[in-house]
Structures are given as structure tokens and as C-alpha cells.
């Protein structure tokens, strides 16, 4: 295999030329997205440079507690992102807690199994393995959970009359909400299913491409990618199921009432 080719900052600056061209075109076409584009680009550069520095010092320090702290901060950001992507949000602390705990629990368990049983780095919590793995799994689980919760909250609010009609005929809350819980779970599963279907045929995943570019044998890169995809799809499914059931529970009460009054519509 060829050796790893190091990139200079000039190479990176040159790579951004096409994006800058996009910016110029969007100004010329008056798309109104030039500011957003510029902001997103700068944000990406700053965030990635910072995370590079952070990872470098974390690898040097090698503290399990610091690694755990960074992992928890990642969960916190993901929980906030899930919350922010919903058009109708649960009021109060539960809005953040349901997304955060369901994702933290499922991603945590899956990442632990991957580190202790599968990859087995020495020590098992080594930040060079733990944090990238966690990040990849969490990024995907976050998309699934936010889609399922957004679908659930919209459906329960829109179908209030149909759900209450079933409650009035003696259905319990789970019977009455079941079609909408299923719909929400399906929405959360779709990105994983689509990703698995398209992988290798339409898309070459970033992690695998990165490994190949840095000189790893393609067969080895494929093995790592398969493992990561299994972990991602598994963790996302668990997180989606936990979050949907948790949110449906929070939107009903022990007298089998539908409690859409606990939702708050966000002004868009």
C-alpha cells in the first residue's frame, strides 16, 4: 500500500475554492444563502481545528475521567440538537431528558461492548478509540431520534381527536397511540436502512474513505466500516425505540389521557 500523504494547509485552502465559488454564485443568483454558507464554513473550520487540538491533548493526557467527561459533553450537545430539531417540543426538563437519556443509554451500551469485546484497545477506554467511535454512533443515533420524536409529536398533536375517540370507546393509551408510535419509530429507522442500502453502491462512507486515503488496506477498511455500520444501526434503533416510548409516556398520563398540553410549538 502507498504511504500516508500529509496535507498542507495550502492544500486545504485550495480545496475550499469550489465552496467559495458556490458562495460567489449564490450571491450572483441572489439565493440569499451566502451568509449562512459562510457562517457554516467558518464554524466547521473552527470546530474541527478545536476538536483536533482537544483530541491531541486528550490522547497525550490519557485520563479515563477526562474521556468520560468529553463523552458526556457530547451526549449533552446531541440532546440539545435533538430538542432543537423538533417543531413541537415537550415542555420543561423532559424535552431534553428523553432524547438525552435514551441516546446516552443505547449509544453508551453499544460503544462499551464495541470497545471491551470487539476492538479491545489497551486500555479499553483509550480516547483514540472511544471518542471517534462514540462520535460516529452518536451522530447517526441523533438523526434517528430527532426524526422519530418530531414525527411522534406532530402526529399526536394533529390526531388528537382520533386518539381521544379511541380512548372514549374504552381503549387504553397504548392502544390509542399505537399507530402513531409505530409511524414515529419507522421514521427513526429509515435513515439507517437507507444508509445500509446505499453503502458501497452509491456512497463510500467517510470513515472507510479516510482509512483508505491514509494507507490502510481496503479489506481492513471495509471490516472496520461494517463493524461501525452494525453498531450505528443497532444503537440508533435502540435509541429510537427508547425515545419514542419515553415521549409517548410523557404525552399521556396514568388515567389514560392524551396530554398534548405538555407540548409547546416553536415559532418558526
Amino acid at each position: 500500500m502507498s504511504e500516508y500523504v500529509e496535507l498542507s494547509y495550502i492544500d486545504i485552502a485550495l480545496a475550499s475554492v469550489f465552496l467559495l465559488l458556490n458562495g460567489a454564485l449564490s450571491l450572483w443568483l441572489r439565493l440569499g444563502i451566502a451568509r449562512n454558507l459562510a457562517f457554516a464554513m467558518v464554524r466547521m473550520v473552527v470546530q474541527l481545528l478545536l476538536v483536533g487540538l482537544l483530541l491531541k491533548s486528550l490522547f497525550a493526557i490519557q485520563s479515563p475521567w477526562l474521556t468520560l467527561l468529553v463523552a458526556l459533553i457530547m451526549v449533552g450537545f446531541a440532546a440539545r440538537e435533538i430538542w432543537a430539531r423538533q417543531e413541537r417540543r415537550l415542555k420543561g426538563w423532559r424535552g431534553l431528558a428523553i432524547g438525552g437519556t435514551s441516546m446516552g443509554a443505547s449509544v453508551g451500551v453499544v460503544a462499551l461492548v464495541a470497545l471491551i469485546v470487539l476492538v479491545q484497545p489497551e486500555p479499553w477506554w483509550h480516547p483514540r478509540f472511544a471518542l471517534p467511535l462514540l462520535g460516529m454512533i452518536m451522530g447517526n443515533a441523533m438523526t434517528g431520534v430527532s426524526l422519530s420524536l418530531d414525527t411522534l409529536h406532530t402526529a399526536l398533536n394533529r390526531e388528537q381527536r382520533a386518539i381521544e375517540a379511541q380512548l372514549l370507546l374504552g381503549a387504553d393509551k397504548w392502544q390509542a397511540m399505537r399507530p402513531f408510535i409505530r409511524q414515529a419509530m419507522r421514521a427513526g429507522f429509515m435513515p439507517s436502512i437507507n444508509a445500509m442500502a446505499a453503502i458501497g453502491v452509491v456512497s463510500l462512507p467517510g470513515m472507510m474513505t479516510g482509512q483508505i486515503l491514509s494507507g490502510v488496506d481496503p479489506n481492513e477498511a471495509v471490516k472496520y466500516q461494517l463493524m461501525v455500520m452494525f453498531l450505528i444501526a443497532g444503537a440508533t434503533g435502540l435509541a429510537v425505540i427508547l425515545a419514542t416510548l419515553g415521549s409517548a409516556r410523557a404525552l399521556s398520563d396514568d388515567r389514560d389521557r392524551l396530554r398534548v398540553d405538555r407540548l409547546r410549538k416553536v415559532k418558526t
Binding site: 390526531e159 381527536r161 382520533a162 386518539i163 375517540a165 379511541q166 380512548l167 370507546l169 374504552g170 389514560d256
Partner: peptide, 26 residues
């Protein structure tokens, strides 16, 4: 239990709700 209560004390709202496509399913 709430479902039993609602079967005994049955409420007909001013606007009815329907959850399936065909009438018979209700």
C-alpha cells in the same frame, strides 16, 4: 380504571374522531 370508566360514562363530543379508513373498522 379509566378505560372502564369511559365505557360506562360514554361521551359523544361535538365533533367525532375517526382513526381508520373505513366506517366498519370503527
Amino acid at each position: 380504571p379509566a378505560p372502564d370508566w369511559r365505557r360506562k360514562v360514554a361521551y359523544l363530543p361535538a365533533e367525532s374522531g375517526w382513526w381508520a379508513d373505513s366506517v366498519g373498522e370503527h
